[in-house]
C-alpha cells in the first residue's frame, strides 16, 4: 500500500528584513506518499521554492515540522536529491565526473561507481558527452546531467526547483517525457516546483496550488487524467482552465502587491 513519506506539519517560515517581516509560508500541512509526483504551483512569491528548500534542508522552517520517513529534516542530504533551475553542475568536472562525485565522497568502490555512472549516462542519452565539460552542453543536456547526478545517489526523493524553466518549449517537452519515464522506472517520489500550469497538468499526480504571501495551500488537486496525457484533449484543457483561474487570482494579488510596494518606494 502507499506509504506516507513526507509529512509537512504546520510549517511556517518568516523572513526577517530590516523594514518588515515577510511571512513566506503559513500553516502548511501536506502529506506526500511514496512514489507520488507532486507539483507545487503558483506565481512568484508564493513560497513554493521556500517550501522545497525547507524539505531539502537548505533553509529550515521558523516553526512546524517536516518529517521524511518519520525523521525530522535538519540538514540537506542525498536521500532528498535536488535538481536546481540553474543546473548547479560543477563546471570543472566533466559530465561523468559530475555524476560520479556524490558516490566518490560517499566512499563507494571505483568499479561500482564506474558501472553505475555508465548505466545512467546510457539511460539519459549522455554517453557521447561523458568527457565534455558543462560549458560545452546545451541547457537541456545540462539538466539531464543534473538529473543523472541525483539518480546516481539513489535518492528515493527528487526535489526539482523549476528545473525546465530556462529551456525552450521543445526541449522542455522532451525532458518532461524523459522525467516521466525515469519516474516510472525508478519509482521516485518527486516534488516539482513550477509556475507553468501546462507543465504541472502534464506531469503531476497531484497539484498543490499555493497562495501569494503568505504562502498557504490554496487547493490540493488530484489529477485523474491517464498517462500519457494529450495536452490537446478536452479534459486536459478543462484542468488547465480550472488551475489557471486559481493561479491567476494569486497572480493578481502578486501584481497588486508589487504596485503597492512600488507606490511606497
Amino acid at each position: 500500500m502507499q506509504q506516507q513519506q513526507i509529512v509537512v506539519g504546520d510549517v511556517q517560515k518568516v523572513f526577517r528584513t530590516q523594514e518588515r517581516d515577510v511571512v513566506a509560508l503559513k500553516d502548511i500541512n501536506l502529506t506526500i506518499n511514496q512514489g507520488e509526483f507532486v507539483c507545487l504551483l503558483g506565481p512568484s512569491g508564493c513560497g513554493k521554492s521556500t517550501l522545497l528548500n525547507a524539505i531539502a534542508g537548505f533553509s529550515l522552517p521558523s516553526s512546524g515540522s517536516i518529517l521524511v520517513d518519520g525523521r525530522p529534516v535538519s540538514a540537506p542530504g542525498p536521500e532528498r536529491g535536488m535538481v536546481f533551475q540553474e543546473y548547479a553542475l560543477f563546471p570543472w568536472m566533466t559530465v561523468a565526473q559530475n555524476v560520479a562525485f556524490g558516490l566518490e565522497v560517499k566512499g563507494m568502490a571505483k568499479a561500482d561507481i564506474a558501472a553505475r555512472v555508465d548505466n545512467l549516462l546510457d539511460k539519459l542519452h549522455l554517453k557521447d558527452f561523458r568527457n565534455r565539460f558543462p560549458k560545452d552542453l546545451s541547457g537541456g543536456m545540462r539538466q539531464r546531467v543534473a538529473i543523472a547526478r541525483v539518480l546516481a545517489m539513489d535518492s528515493p526523493i527528487m526535489l526539482m526547483d523549476e528545473p525546465f524553466g530556462a529551456l525552450d518549449a521543445l526541449t522542455r517537452r522532451n525532458l518532461q517525457d524523459e522525467l516521466l519515464r525515469i519516474w516510472a522506472e525508478f519509482g521516485k517520489t518527486i516534488i516539482f516546483v513550477t509556475h507553468s500550469i501546462e507543465e504541472s497538468s502534464y506531469l503531476a499526480d497531484r497539484i498543490v496550488v499555493m497562495t501569494y504571501r503568505p504562502g498557504t495551500v490554496k487547493r490540493d488537486h488530484h489529477v485523474t487524467l491517464p498517462r500519457p496525457r494529450d495536452p490537446s484533449c478536452t479534459e486536459f484543457n478543462e484542468l488547465k482552465r480550472e488551475l489557471g483561474q486559481l493561479v491567476m487570482e494569486e497572480q493578481q494579488r502578486h501584481a497588486a502587491a508589487e504596485m503597492r510596494l512600488a507606490a511606497v518606494d
Binding site: 531539502a56 537548505f58 542530504g77 542525498p78 536529491g81 536546481f84 565522497v105 560517499k106
Partner: peptide
C-alpha cells in the same frame, strides 16, 4: 553559493568540500 548547496545536497563532507569544490571554484 549554488555549488555549495549542490555539494551539501550530495552529502559532501567538510574536507571534500574544500578540496573538490571550493578550491577548483
Amino acid at each position: 553559493g549554488i555549488y555549495l548547496r549542490a555539494a551539501h545536497n550530495l552529502g559532501v563532507g567538510q574536507l571534500a568540500l574544500f578540496t573538490r569544490v571550493i578550491l577548483p571554484a
